[in-house]
């Protein structure tokens, strides 16, 4: 066993190299995957939010002009049922809140925000969570602005799920690669172990009692075994041996 262990040590560096290479590939692929998924999904959510805000803004014009705030609230309530949208509010041209979906009240952070801003803004609202807020002007802003808040924790959860699936795949490939490397190394080490055992026996006794299978191999191990046998017979007597092929 000690000899066998020594033989396997020949491959330790190779195995380490293989593991390191697989690990590097897995980590770099995961990092790239996280970055790509995170960026794309975040952009998609923001883009969808802007589309929703624009849709509300476009459909609000007549209702706003009719000052029918109940109908406007009803419209907004339908959109807030969409997954990921946590709040919607509409301000008029003076910044007054006309409709909103906040319970129990409009957060101070929202009250103090610029009501005309339509660029994406990240907000942390106490007791509610983290949000990306986007806006869309109604009649180019002269009638007001629609603001839509997307729940970033939900976005993060979706991103985590997407990334998780990618990492599971990469980890699976990594594990299969590692086990395959170990199996291949062991496959390569087995004839070497047999050759070592044969060489040790030749060295101790000058000959072997039976013809070992290692002499029958057609590969380099077989050639070495036959060379060891030739050399042993040259040095230790017995019937002359043919030089190994």
């Amino acid at each position: 066993m000690a000899e066998a262990t020594k033989v396997k040590k020949l491959f330790q560096k190779t195995l380490f190299g293989v593991f390191s290479l697989f690990g590097f590939i897995a980590l770099s692929m995961s990092a790239l995957c996280i970055y790509t998924v995170d960026t794309h999904l975040s952009e998609e959510y923001v883009s969808n939010s802007q589309d929703i805000a624009k849709t509300i803004a476009d459909s609000s014009v007549d209702i706003m002009l009719n000052r029918n705030l109940a109908a406007l609230q009803s419209l907004v309530d339908q959109f807030v049922e969409i997954q990921g949208i946590k709040y919607i509010y509409i301000t008029n041209e003076t910044g007054e809140f006309l409709v909103h979906t906040f319970v129990p009240g409009i957060p101070d952070e929202v009250v103090s925000a610029d009501p005309m801003n339509t660029a994406p803004v990240e907000r942390t609202l106490p007791g509610m969570g983290d949000f990306v807020e986007v806006g869309a002007p109604i009649l180019a802003g002269v009638a007001g602005t629609v603001h839509v808040g997307m729940d970033t924790s939900l976005i993060a959860l979706k991103i985590q799920r997407a990334i998780g699936r990618q990492i599971y795949l990469i980890s699976g490939v990594f594990l299969v690669g590692v086990f395959a490397a170990i199996w291949l190394v062991n496959l390569a080490a087995k004839p070497l172990s047999a050759l070592l055992a044969y060489a040790v026996e030749l060295a101790r006794q000058g000959q072997t009692t039976a013809e070992p299978a290692v002499l029958e191999r057609n590969d380099e191990v077989g050639q070495l075994a036959r060379l060891f046998l030739y050399m042993a017979r040259q040095n230790g007597g017995g019937e002359p041996a043919k030089a190994p092929a």
Partner: peptide, 9 residues
């Protein structure tokens, strides 16, 4: 927080 409340508001 719906159309009824907004109507009264």
């Amino acid at each position: 927080a719906d159309a009824y409340g907004r109507s009264g508001w």
